[in-house]
């Protein structure tokens, strides 16, 4: 009897040691699972079923049904994303999420979102912390960092530093979209005039050009430029501004020292106030090309 009890004691000790090491292993695995970027948060509905199927927790599930359910879910999500992209005018290419801290009360994630809004390519990185309190939760962005890759980035510089400081992510995207819409207006207008008056109007550079040139074929040294800039204020207000610039040989200026040419920009601005932007531009073009009103170049 004595002997048996000693044997038992040894066995108990061995088992206890085994349990301890197993517990440590389980804890380590759980930690690894938590560290994994794809956390269980993603697995809801069919994806959760699929996860359980893959982990062999649900041997009774038929694979074929699962696959068709997943395909269906994927299609629905794709449709949603298409709609969201169209509505927001912003294409998102990727998001990476890294959980920095996670407990039942708060969650801190490092998020990086990349995408583009027409040809403005952006990359935004920020920390998102979520604190749950009783019945509501507060989400807060900290440490925001924006990288903008485009020709127009200098227009944004003041706004960008302000928005990074105020961490106003939605404001950044609203401004980006409005800016891109205004750029669209500009290139459409330039294209329209180029099509309507091909011998007079030229737009140097790509469709994002800020300048449209007017040049009468018979007077090559005389040129007018529309300089159409789109400014972004520190607050995020987007406002277009058009200037009319002239390039006239000195000899010609000596012959006509009168005001009109010198004050071209001011004159254009008053015209713009009366007629609106496009009509004002058109009347200038007609004046340069010596076209009568309501006639395009082809008809003249």
């Amino acid at each position: 009897m004595e002997k048996m009890s000693v044997e038992n004691k040894e066995q108990v000790e061995a088992l206890e040691a085994q349990i301890e090491s197993l517990q440590a292993e389980v804890e380590e695995l759980q930690r690894q699972k938590q560290d994994n970027q794809l956390d269980w948060f993603h697995f809801k509905g069919h994806t959760r079923e699929a996860m359980m199927f893959l982990c062999k927790q649900r041997p009774e599930q038929r694979k074929q049904t699962l696959v068709s359910k997943l395909i269906e879910e994927g299609e629905e999500l794709e449709e949603d994303l298409k709609q969201q992209t169209q509505m927001n005018g912003i294409v998102l290419n990727g998001i990476t999420t890294k959980t920095l801290q996670s407990s039942s009360r708060n969650l801190i994630q490092q998020i990086c979102i990349s995408g583009h809004c027409s040809d403005l390519v952006f990359n935004v990185e920020f920390k998102l912390s979520e604190v749950k309190e009783a019945d509501r939760s507060e989400r807060r962005i900290t440490e925001m960092n924006v990288v903008l890759d485009s020709f127009e980035k200098q227009n944004f510089s003041i706004f960008l530093s302000g928005v990074e400081e105020s961490r106003d992510l939605p404001l950044f995207f609203r401004t980006l979209r409005t800016f891109s819409d205004r750029c669209g207006d500009r290139s459409r207008a330039f294209l329209h005039f180029k099509d309507k008056f091909p011998s007079l109007v030229s737009v140097p550079g790509c469709c994002r050009s800020e300048v449209m040139t007017l040049n009468h074929p018979q007077i090559p040294s005389f040129m007018l430029f529309f300089h159409w800039t789109i400014n972004v204020s520190a607050e995020g207000a987007v406002s277009p501004h058009i200037d009319l610039l002239t390039k006239i040989p000195k000899e010609a200026l000596k012959l006509f020292p009168s005001q009109p040419v010198g004050g071209a920009s001011e004159a254009f601005h008053s015209l713009q106030r009366i007629l609106g932007t496009e009509a004002a531009m058109e009347s200038i073009i007609r004046a340069v090309g010596l076209f009568p009103d309501n006639q395009s170049e082809c008809e003249a």
Partner: peptide, 8 residues
């Protein structure tokens, strides 16, 4: 992400 950037 669309939701986070203040999308509609």
């Amino acid at each position: 992400a669309h939701h986070l950037i203040g999308g509609y």
